[in-house]
């Protein structure tokens, strides 16, 4: 406890973490170099692009692992605790409210993804909200309805596509003769200046992250809720 008094003040601009050269570079130069007002997004998706890409891969791997552990195919679970579980007709009140709410939640999720540059948000958060809209359908009706809307195969394809989009931006800049994930060079194939190209590619990368997070969120939920049988559940 005695060491606490020696900590720098909260938000002190002269504290060691803030006076380090790299931090100062981020604080002062982000807006010129990338035209992104939200510094966090710029650091996350541009300066530290490798980190975020592999975070996405980690999420993807986690989803695959959960599917590998929980998912059960075939009808070998016929006698597994069937009698106590019983499916009900969806409740009218909950169903109607959720029905009216789902499109607005999806719109809000897309807003969070698209405005990651200006306000807090981005691919991870927006993806979670978008996945929540699928979960809301599964909760308000049943898992079957949600599965019909977004089949399992399609959701896994989406997860893969998300990672590929991210890597695609990296490869694109590699092909055009720059380092991996150095987006500025992409202005050659985009109708934008190099600085804008960085900001637009960040948006593309966020969309890739959002695909993966949405898909993995929903797939984890449906596997956990239905004991891996994907038939009935919460």
């Amino acid at each position: 406890m005695s060491a606490v008094s020696d900590f720098p003040d909260w938000g002190d601009p002269n504290s060691p973490a803030n006076s380090y050269r790299l931090s100062q570079h981020y604080v002062t130069e982000t807006i010129h170099e990338t035209s992104v007002p939200n510094m966090v997004t710029a650091v996350l998706a541009d300066y530290r692009g490798y980190d975020t890409m592999f975070e996405t891969v980690v999420i993807f791997t986690a989803g695959i692992a959960i599917i590998g552990i929980l998912r059960r195919f075939g009808n070998d679970d016929k006698d597994a605790a069937k009698p106590t579980l019983y499916t009900k007709k969806p409740d009218l009140i909950i169903d109607t409210t959720c029905r009216l709410m789902i499109p607005i939640i999806q719109l809000f999720a897309l807003y969070v993804i698209a405005h990651g540059h200006h306000s807090p948000g981005g691919g991870f958060q927006g993806g979670v909200i978008f996945g929540a809209s699928f979960i809301l359908l599964a909760v308000s009706r049943d898992l079957q309805a949600a599965q019909k809307w977004v089949p399992e195969k399609r959701i896994l394809n989406l997860a893969g596509i998300g990672v590929l989009i991210y890597a695609g931006f990296g490869l694109g800049s590699l092909l055009l003769g720059q380092n991996f994930l150095d987006y500025a060079i992409l202005h050659k194939i985009m109708p934008a200046t190099p600085i804008e190209a960085r900001s637009h590619s960040m948006l593309g990368v966020e969309i890739g992250v959002a695909f993966t997070v949405t898909a993995i969120m929903f797939s984890i939920y449906s596997n956990l809720a239905s004991n891996g049988s994907m038939k009935e559940g919460l």
């Binding site: 909950i94 809000f108 909200i129 929540a132 979960i135 919460l234």
Partner: peptide, 12 residues
């Protein structure tokens, strides 16, 4: 967002 997740949580 918090209101949304709260709602979904209580429904679940």
């Amino acid at each position: 967002t918090y209101a949304l997740l709260n709602f979904i949580g209580s429904l679940a």
